[in-house]
Design a protein around this nucleic acid. Structure first.
Lengths: 225, 225
DNA sequence: ACCTGAACACCGTTCAAGT
DNA sequence: ACCTGAACACCGTTCAAGT
């Protein structure tokens, strides 16, 4: 009944990666440390090297896991721009589950099976919509980057901080903006609330994705320039 | 005539920040270390603490400097979408000078004087174009994020790597993509070259900015959805 | 197969002390 | 005003050794 470990789980590659992501979400990516993970498992730091080649490989594996459960084919027979929206939305939803790890995603798309499948799908959609291969590559890359950047800067979501700290930082930022002379920065003062708050995160994501999809659409049929 | 220092410059806050950015550009942001900077100036690490509060403050100061020399009012009397393009382009051009530092920019816009001025200008342009304050905040934030993401993932620009290493990594990535079964990933294989290369960086930036501006334009007059 | 101990070369930072 | 020495609590990683 009594375990050898101070902290529950048995050590394994999967458990290490899993715990690393939890740790990142709770305390920020900087808290993810070989030595700290050792502690979490009640084991010496060196024990981890049996399950993971080194820290870089661990971070890569975390990046791969970001794509787990990625949904994008929710609109199989819809027009191309709806499908592009679905891929981008799916990416954002997937990445949003681990905001502190979002920067690990970009370099791993083609290595994570789900990322690869989503990319292949997006490429097909765009090519058949009539985009050149250059445009297809650019737009698909842009879709991933859009999802990443929406997650990274979702207002009020600062990974590694407690809710109180987040509130505290917002208060400080607001106070700072109010020190700016209204004569010089009327618009910044006027928009302070909109810059700091985001009561409706669903609308935030929808807006960002709409802008991107509309932009892509205009690349296909450049109406007015 | 003979200096006390092993390495040229006198120590000062400005010199430290300047050298830190050079170091980041040459060897990546991870190479920027209090101890390493001490070495560069021929001084003990602790000497730096006289000129800079701590490492966080140094990084903030580097972020501020990214906005130095920012140009955006190249189209004062142009229509709003031209002006939005000019701001975004100016941001990208400014950030591009220190690609390794680009992640420091976002949180510092309102603290760097040039960033603040650019934000104020962009807000005015968007408000007068008829956007709501919510939309204005979102679009302007998006403009900065677009610039950041274009710089961050300019293909072939991997800060902290020598040209040979960049080439080497690209070769490896290409080799990897070619291991993927063509039956499962026909589009990835077809687009491999476009994903890896970017012979025309001017076109890369122009395309990214065009997509963004067109997207913003469609938010003002939602023609077809 | 899986984990530990000891060691190495690094970090950021503080604090009392020197000039 | 500006810098140093010594010290502390951290990093990632290697390698021989234990079970």
């Amino acid at each position: 009944m009594k375990s050898k470990r101070a902290a529950g789980d048995a050590l394994s590659r999967d458990a290490v990666i899993e715990r690393a992501m939890q740790l990142a979400d709770a305390e920020g990516l900087d808290a993810v440390t070989i030595r700290r993970l050792g502690q979490e498992f009640g084991v010496t730091p060196m024990a981890l090297y049996w399950h993971v080649k080194n820290k870089d490989e661990l971070l890569d594996a975390m990046g791969d896991r970001l794509f787990a459960g990625l949904r994008y084919d929710t609109a199989r027979d819809a027009p191309w721009d709806e499908q592009l929206r679905a891929v981008t939305h799916g990416l954002a939803e997937a990445l949003r589950r681990h905001p502190a790890c979002v920067d690990l995603a970009f370099r791993r798309v083609f290595y994570a099976p789900e990322g690869r499948a989503a990319a292949e799908h997006a490429f097909g959609v765009l090519r058949q919509a009539g985009f050149s291969s250059r445009q297809t590559a650019d737009i698909a890359t842009h879709a991933l980057q859009t999802a990443i950047m929406l997650v990274r800067s979702e207002p009020g979501a600062e990974p590694g901080f407690t809710p109180e700290q987040v509130l505290e930082r917002r208060t400080q930022k607001r106070a700072y903006l109010e020190t700016l002379p209204a004569a010089d920065y009327p618009y910044i003062r006027e928009l302070a609330d909109d810059l700091l708050d985001c009561d409706d995160t669903a609308a935030y994501y929808a807006f960002g994705i709409d802008v991107f999809v509309a932009g892509a659409r205009s690349m296909l049929s450049p109406a007015a320039v």
